[in-house]
Design a protein around this nucleic acid. Structure first.
Lengths: 100, 100
DNA sequence: TTGACATGCAACCTAGAGGTTGCATACTGG
DNA sequence: CCAGTATGCAACCTCTAGGTTGCATGTCAA
């Protein structure tokens, strides 16, 4: 059980999550392409993201499709919420943004 | 320039931020008391939080008062916002499904 | 069937995070 | 002034995160 903030601490992992959010489910090879590291390096990051329940993996033929699961990010947002009260009336704008 | 998620990745640092949020500005000695580590250990974490602009330090006599600065947490919340849209729409879909 | 592609598995390397101990420095109150 | 409190500074230790290389396995396409 990897805490979500630990998973978010790494730039590579954040990039992977962004990629999955924008482009939808992808196989490892697609995720590894364009990354400044080896495929095996990306694999390790994906394993950690999976341990943090942020990605779900599903076999499809010889590929393994990785899909985003944003649910654990909710904990993170909820942890941050009380601090948001500190930076004051900006909350309203954020609320509106979230409701869109 | 420490990215904020890296600062949030450690349980001890999150505890320090919580403490500062709830109890207001505190000297190092007060923050170190009750922590399961040495004062110097706490110092290192506070230095990192300071590098991440999450705490401001101010000398007062022989004490150094540490105060929370929640501003950088806003970046974190904003980074998370688009993902929140995902679980919101999921909930909406679920609602609609249940209403059928 | 046979390459070629997608991935898994394991061993290995290295820098830095997270912690310690020991001592130095600075301020304060009586 | 002196003793105690608050903190800084530096060296050191250990473990693991983040990356590599090399090879094995499984699957598709012709």
């Amino acid at each position: 059980m990897i805490p979500v903030f630990e998973a978010l601490a790494d730039e590579t992992r954040r990039a992977l999550l962004e990629r999955l959010r924008l482009d939808g489910p992808l196989p490892l090879s697609a995720l590894a392409a364009g990354m400044p590291m080896t495929r095996q390096g990306v694999t390790k990051h994906l394993e950690l993201l999976r341990a943090a329940r942020l990605v779900r993996v599903e076999r499809r033929g010889r590929e393994r499709i990785h899909a985003l699961d944003p649910q654990p990010l909710r904990e993170a947002t909820e942890w941050l919420a009380p601090y948001a009260a500190r930076w004051e009336t900006r909350i309203e704008r954020l609320k509106q943004h979230l409701e869109e």
